[in-house]
Each structure stands twice: as C-alpha cells, then as structure tokens.
Design a protein around this nucleic acid. Structure first.
Lengths: 219, 219
DNA sequence: CGCGCCCGTTCAGGCTGCCGTCAGCTTCGC
DNA sequence: GCGAAGCTGACGGCAGCCTGAACGGGCGCG
C-alpha cells in the first residue's frame, strides 16, 4: 500500500514515516502542498495523511479540491486542531478519518489498518463491470479472468470513470483529473488514452457522447 | 438510509435518535444485543451505531461476530472508553469509525455523512418530470426507466426549458441560448430540434404557443 | 555515463454521425 | 376555406472523434 504523508513538522513527520515503514507500508513524505500535488501527479496513492496547517496553504482547501475533482483516495487528517468545528469541517470536506495531535503511533497504525481493510479487506473489494473484475486496492484489472496491465495515466482515467459510473464526464473534467491544475494542452491526449483503454478493456467500456464527453458504459 | 442504533443509555439514545431523524435518516433504536440481532435478521441496515458497554455483552464481541460472518455493514462505535488501547481494539475488530462520549451531535452527523458518502458515493439529485427522470450532473434522461440519449444541442435546448419550467420561451430566446450570440440562423432550426426532442421525450413534454414560442408542459 | 525500454504526447489521415437546411405536409386561427 | 405558422422526413457537409505511427523524455540497468 502506497501512502503519501503531508506534514511540515520534521520531528513528527519522521516519527510517522518510521512507524508506517515499520508496518511494512511504503511512504512518500512531503512538507508542502505543491510538493504533494507533484507527487500525486507522478504516483497514485492508496492513502493520504494530511496535516491541516502547512506553510503554503490550508489542507482543508487541498482536500476539497481533491474531492471536487472526483479523487476518492482515502484521507486521514493529522492536526493539532481539536475544536469540534474543525473536525466537522474536515469530515465534511471529505476526510475519511481524523487524528488529533498528539496521538499514539500505535493508534495511527490501527487507523491505517482500518482504512486499508475498508478498501482492500473482506469479503471482496472486487468490482465487476461486465467482463471486467477491478481490484481498486491492488490497482489491477482482469478481463475474462486474464490480467490486463494498465499504465498510470490509464488507471487515473479509468478511476475517474469508476468514481462516477454512468455520469457524463467532459474532456475538460478528465484533463483536470489527470493533470492537477495547469495543463493548457490543446491536443487530443484524452482521446488517445480513451482509445487505448478501450483497446485493453473492450470497446463497450467507455461510451462517447459526441460534443459532450465520455461516460462509463453499462456492463 | 436505514440506521440501527444500539445504545442502552436512554437519554443519549433519544438524543442520537432525534438528531439522526432531524438529518432525514430513518433509525431503529434497540438497547440490547439480542434485540439488535433480531432487528438485523428482519431488516438490512446501511449503518450501525454501536455502544460498547451493554447489559447483555460487550459490543466488541458482537462486532467481531458480524465481521467473521462476512457482514460488511459499516459500524461506528459510540463509547465512553477513551483509552487508546480500546480504540485500537474497536478498529481492529472491524469498526469503521469511533466516537468517544461525550461527543457533539453535529459531529455525529458529520461522521454519518462521511460513512454514507464512502459507501454509496454521493448520488446526484434526480429531477422527475412526469415519466422523465433527469440527472443534470450526469447529463442523462430516463423515460419510463429507459435511458434516452440526447445529443449536445438537444440537451442544451432541454436544459433551457428545465431552467424555467412552465415559462414561455420565444424562438429568439432559445436561439440565443443555443448559439453564442453572434450566429445568425435563418431557418427553422429550433423547430427541428424541438421536434427531435419531442420524439425522444414524448410529445407532451414541450408545448407550442402559436406565434409566441414554446414552454415545458405540465408533468 | 550510455543505452534501451516504456510511457505520454503529438500528428495526420480517415470516418462517423450531428446539425442546419429545405421541401412538402399539417395544424391553427379567423 | 385561406393564409400563416409549425412539423417532420430526408440529406449533405463538416466538426468532432478515432487510431496507427512516430517522437522524445525519464528511468533503470549495465
């Protein structure tokens, strides 16, 4: 399981990183939101540990941004704020869990385990969609029982569709999902990735709505 | 969403029940584990709120039993135990979340919302108009339960009517809506699109006001 | 440090089907 | 019954989409 830790306190950050590593998970640790965005553009994570007070912005806004872009990566908030209203804001912004500093490292492990089980645990985290079996936790797809390898971009795109099954997604929305914020790209990248996804997953998987966008086809 | 509340403290139980009801959810409240088992046999719940200290047994065992039987109903634990080790036990037993008494009722609402969102995704609001179900976010229309694909122009036109239900819209107004202000269209384009929409959505959907324009019909 | 491989992006050529137009017909008001 | 307004089937052009192929950058490995 890949975990992204966003925490500017170096002492706490190192302790958390070591604890997670001791649990056998892999961690990337960044201290700023822009670095977090870069990391998320490069890799996809299974869990984000997010400090709310950071040098370059409030974590709440970052989290809200994620959710409005349709990103469903589980987020656990780590923060010194212990006001009830802040905890509510965090949960309403789309956080999955909350830890108030100072917290016990073994409790952190338990919470990570809880989130991991929720997403990868029993009985079957396998989504089926027609001939496709999708394991979100393992980031793997099987088509008619045969494993289909997807690249990072293809996964990101496919996840965007899975997060909103049946919903129409415009190319602009998909670009935002794939490229965080910038990207003034005037090209047909999305079309190409859709084309490749269809080739791998079956042409019925994604439907074109001419002039409007794409949507996940019915199974 | 159906919620099962297992709590033997009558004051707290009533407060929680009322809070959930105020949020528009439906609640069944039991005070004992055997009553909980009966209720779960009769109905299936979307969420369980579980007190750990109950007259007829420890809630932890109940929760573990659920999970070993493969039940994945989300569980939020409510308890006065605030020892870190108890919280870890609860999460390791398969709880999805944890609230330590005394807790704020609005925080309870936020956590319920969080769990609900996690499990059901947030479905889009559906407008109904006679036999039509309209999902604006997904850009989809169902007629008598069957999906009706609309083209970009048709959708734009339909949206114009939905935005002003029952209001008369002249052809000139509709043309402005469909064509960004500059385009001079000297033909019966609007009539054609209205015709196509009626064919797809039912002829009663849009009414003609001769010499004046069109309006959305009564459902 | 250099090489090779893989992945994301770009480009161009071809294809699909949406949309605007028109013509002939129907409906409405008087 | 007559004219005006609206309806709808048919059709061609072209915007929008698809996809094979090539380019180039990044990364791991030797």
């Amino acid at each position: 399981m890949r975990i992204l830790l966003i925490e500017d306190d170096t002492t706490l950050g190192a302790a958390v990183r070591d604890q997670i590593a001791a649990d056998g998970q892999s961690v990337d640790w960044v201290t700023r939101l822009d670095a977090a965005r870069d990391a998320m553009a490069a890799t996809s994570y299974d869990l984000i540990l997010l400090d709310l007070m950071l040098p370059d912005g409030r974590g709440i806004g970052f989290l809200k941004g994620l959710r409005t872009r349709g990103d469903v990566t589980p987020v656990i908030i780590l923060t010194a704020l212990d006001q009830v209203s802040d905890r509510i804001d965090g949960l309403n912004a789309g956080a999955d869990d909350y830890l108030v500093k100072p917290f016990d490292l073994s409790e952190l492990s338990a919470r990570i385990g809880s989130v991991a089980r929720r997403y990868s645990g029993n009985p079957n985290p396998i989504l089926t969609h027609g001939p496709l079996d999708i394991d979100l936790a393992a980031r793997s797809v099987h088509r008619d029982g045969r494993h289909v390898p997807l690249t990072a971009r293809e996964w990101a795109l496919f996840e965007a569709f899975l997060a909103r099954p049946g919903q129409l997604l415009s190319k602009a929305q998909l670009e935002e999902k794939l490229y965080a914020f910038d990207a003034e790209v005037e090209s047909n990248t999305i079309e190409v990735h859709v084309s490749r996804l269809r080739k791998k997953l079956g042409s019925a998987t994604i439907e074109t709505e001419r002039g409007m966008g794409y949507r996940l086809g019915r199974p």
